[in-house]
């Protein structure tokens, strides 16, 4: 039993952490409803009459709308493909012994050890020779190289925590490997799959470097467009913040939808 002062300190700590992490978010959202003068006012204006002008401006801009659609296409396709390709790989790595397994495992992890900028030029050249510059496909492919390892990594761990007895019981029940994967491992691995899907989505949605290097006009993604406001002689803070808010929304919604699968103790009751 914790003391009352302990609980109070705990609560204060939590409030501070929440305030610290949410304040920038608050600043972005509130600024998106301010005029340029209100944003630049010092001291900051805590109370103001909100305006929707910034949103009207960005949604009137075909570039922004297109960018968001592009981002949605790229992030959704990447996430779906990463999960579809990564989970069977994770199943194999978690449950089978085969030659070169540990090397393969290391390769999956080491994929994330390289700094993306190191590969930017070679990737650009490959994309150019393959005539893939400024297409959705090139972004999806390059994001998959980052996201499949993440899915494999997280989901393998999740699959390993499923008692092997369950698989053997299913084998005796007459289930083949694919059925075991589909009926036992996928539902029980849902928390890990959900986490890895969120990571995939966020990564693909936020990625800036490759999006900047590999796209021109047609498939610019949202982060690329948001930064493009920063060129020229003025900084339209209101539009930047409004774009930022719009960019954050889909990720938040996606995370909320998926997070209901992130319940712990899903395998409880399988074994004593």
């Amino acid at each position: 039993m914790r003391s009352k002062s302990g609980i109070l300190l705990h609560a204060i700590g939590l409030v501070l952490i929440i305030a610290f992490s949410l304040f920038p978010f608050y600043w972005m959202v509130s600024s998106s409803f301010k005029t340029q003068a209100q944003i630049l006012a010092s001291p900051p204006q805590w109370f103001f009459t909100p305006t929707l002008q910034n949103y009207a401006d960005i949604f009137a801009d075909a570039k922004v709308v297109n960018a968001i659609i592009n981002s949605l296409i790229v992030a959704t396709s990447t996430t779906l493909l990463a999960v579809a390709l990564g989970t069977p790989a994770a199943f194999a790595l978690a449950r089978y012994e085969f030659k070169g397994k540990s090397d393969l495992w290391f390769w999956f992890i080491s994929n994330r050890m390289t700094s993306p900028i190191v590969l930017a030029l070679p990737v650009y050249l490959i994309a150019m020779y393959a005539n893939l510059l400024d297409t959705h496909i090139v972004l999806i492919l390059i994001y998959l190289t980052f996201n499949v390892p993440i899915v494999v990594w997280i989901v393998t761990d999740q699959f390993k925590s499923i008692p092997p007895d369950l698989e053997q019981a299913a084998r005796l029940d007459g289930a083949d490997q694919f059925t075991i994967f589909r009926k036992i491992y996928l539902p029980l691995g849902a928390p890990g799959i959900a986490v890895s899907a969120i990571f995939s989505f966020i990564f693909s949605w936020n990625e800036l470097l490759y999006a900047l290097v590999l796209t021109r006009r047609n498939v610019q993604t949202a982060p690329v467009v948001a930064t493009s406001f920063m060129s020229g002689y003025e900084l339209p803070w209101g539009k930047i913040m409004a774009t930022g808010t719009v960019i954050v929304l889909p990720v938040t919604i996606f995370a909320l939808i998926v997070s209901r699968h992130m319940v712990r103790g899903l395998t409880m009751g399988a074994t004593k």
């Binding site: 008692p163 053997q168 019981a169 084998r171 005796l172 029940d173 399988a270 074994t271 004593k272």
Partner: peptide, 17 residues
């Protein structure tokens, strides 16, 4: 295993949770 027409009760029960 499935073709042997056996069934097994595991020590851990191994129920599908």
């Amino acid at each position: 295993p499935a073709k042997r027409e056996l069934s097994m009760v595991f020590q851990s029960y191994a129920l599908y949770p």
